[in-house]
Design a protein around this nucleic acid. Sequence first.
DNA 1: GAGGCGAATGGTAGCGCTACCAACTTCCCT
DNA 2: AGGGAAGTTGGTAGCGCTACCATTCGCCTC
Lengths: 371, 371
Amino acid sequence: MRAHASPADICPGRAGLGRSVGSDGSDLKNRTRRGSGRPTLADVAGRAGVGSITVSRALRDPERVSEHLRRRIAAAVEELGYVPNPSARALASARADVIGVLVPSLTNNVFSEVLRGIHDGLEDCPLQIQFGNTHYSTREEERLLRVFLGQRPAALVVSGIDQEPATRRLLEEAGCPVVQIMEIGPDPVDMMVGFSHFEAGKAVARHLVDVGCRKIGFLGARMDPRTQRRLAGYRAVMEAAGRTARVTTTAAPSSASMGVSLLHRILESEPDVDAIVCNNDDIALGVLFACQRAGIDVPERISIAGFNDLDMMSVAFPSITSVRTPRYEIGRCAIAMALAAIAGERPRESVVDLGFELRIRESTRRRGPEK
Amino acid sequence: MRAHASPADICPGRAGLGRSVGSDGSDLKNRTRRGSGRPTLADVAGRAGVGSITVSRALRDPERVSEHLRRRIAAAVEELGYVPNPSARALASARADVIGVLVPSLTNNVFSEVLRGIHDGLEDCPLQIQFGNTHYSTREEERLLRVFLGQRPAALVVSGIDQEPATRRLLEEAGCPVVQIMEIGPDPVDMMVGFSHFEAGKAVARHLVDVGCRKIGFLGARMDPRTQRRLAGYRAVMEAAGRTARVTTTAAPSSASMGVSLLHRILESEPDVDAIVCNNDDIALGVLFACQRAGIDVPERISIAGFNDLDMMSVAFPSITSVRTPRYEIGRCAIAMALAAIAGERPRESVVDLGFELRIRESTRRRGPEK
DNA sequence: GAGGCGAATGGTAGCGCTACCAACTTCCCT
DNA sequence: AGGGAAGTTGGTAGCGCTACCATTCGCCTC
């Protein structure tokens, strides 16, 4: 069985890698020096018969090296299996080719879409993503941010606009582009990409009013700042329409089964609700299933609206009205803005509103005038 | 230009971050040197009146420094707002405090659960996760692996057991612990955590046979190796039971709407199927909705079984039989094994089977003897 | 009391790379 | 022909940290 690098036994003898560095008869004098046992820039340079700085240039900025040498260097890199050492690069250049990304959750498919957009936005550019999960904790957010800043990242992407003052200060002094995502607001640290959750909350509520619902309830789980703003949008519409807000929430994480219990809870206190605005699509699905199970007709007796427009919403039976949010696009746009800023281009607008779109479906069919 | 930082004159005059280091009236002579403009180990050492190596030890291995100095050093770290530079550490010690994790997908909630387990397993240990998304491409897997190896990671976690030969060789020569996750097999590169997808596929199929289904179809999307093995398990049971395998698959990614179209496709070629084994729960949900919409009674006319046991399965109406897979546990276990191996402990068993559990629900109720 | 051993601390020399300059080569303009 | 300008290449000195010793000091053993 193979031995591992325990902290005690790392390096010098270097586990017998297949690759024998410099079989070119160098001073291999069994000098058990520290190194990693891999070819370095200098090895490549020696092989190609050029200075190491030229190799460095050939790799980073091929334009500035003659065709001739470029070819020789590429061959040497290939033969030696040279891979650049990112730590050395970061140390020497005082900046890491890393973009730090902070999101509050991983299980939430909202953020996995955002991450997908971020990855796609990076395409084949040599930046790496350094990823952190704050678990919806501002303390953890600050801690992770400090860790990230220690690496002098090329850019930072953080979720939301409600950073603690200390965290905000760290971001302002980060010395690199910062993109706040998911939401927009009046006072960006640097740049923002997202949409207005308040407006989205209003849009759903207004739609339910418009299709003739009277007693419109709101179900929410894990009331993070974005959810709170959607709730505020709902409340604003209720008030403007002279309706009573009927809100049931929980701090627990959101899920379909939570949707089931929230529906039961709201039906206890408000037995006559005829529409449910759901925090998100998981809740909405739970509510739909709970209605089906209880024999409550959707949408005749209760209309349902979700949020995020997961793929499932359009195939559910009945299909569920939801708000399509540009999750993937937010990720892509955030990275595009970060890359532009790294390249020194200031965006025309530092706050980008990607909007949202109400997708009206069977679960909120228009009703006739009541009884 | 002046002589460089000899231990005596360590750099008090840094670039003006908000934080004013050492207002202790030093020689700030406007020397625009390269550095990052942040406090370094040497700054802390100067402040605490000790050697820099002692600070390094106090930070990495506090036991080995006297209580007295440890306190002084901690104070200096605090005052200066010192944050270690991970690149310098990695360069000097020839290894990074990073665990590389390769997964094939982000949107797939299977892997987001695994990642959650990985993050939780890391707790407050100082390792970082370096995360890569292979998009189910073996080429991309190899490329990312090379990138990761360039950083000399402390450990590597990869998904699946079907690496290309070249990729496998890279893993074998990585010189660090390697954990293959999601599946188990006879020939680990190093360690494995997962369960048998073949057995899981068999378990579902056998269950449907046992409850009296006759014509059992299989629907699959994105047929990755794990899905293939579940399909093989299904086929094995069909054959043993003398039944015809009725398989409809697509290479496209899995989703609920794909479940809908797969159901329509299988009903065209096999109008009399009375049970559907689904690749995963998204498909199963799509199938359920499509049945509801088409007026096909579940489970009386068609039984449905999913895979993964998402939260939704238990609240669906009817609730859907599925196979609970230890996704979160796989992540935790993989990290635990990696950490143990980093610490030099060899696990008793290098292959850990975390098993699976068939959750029988309403969608596969037992049927009476057929007509 | 001499010798020795372990614990605590420090000095030095890099890790592999890039920033900064210097040098050297063309080639064009006056 | 001389004097740059522009393009190429190389040397040197670190980036901030840790490995590897060397040194110091206290304390125990014989």
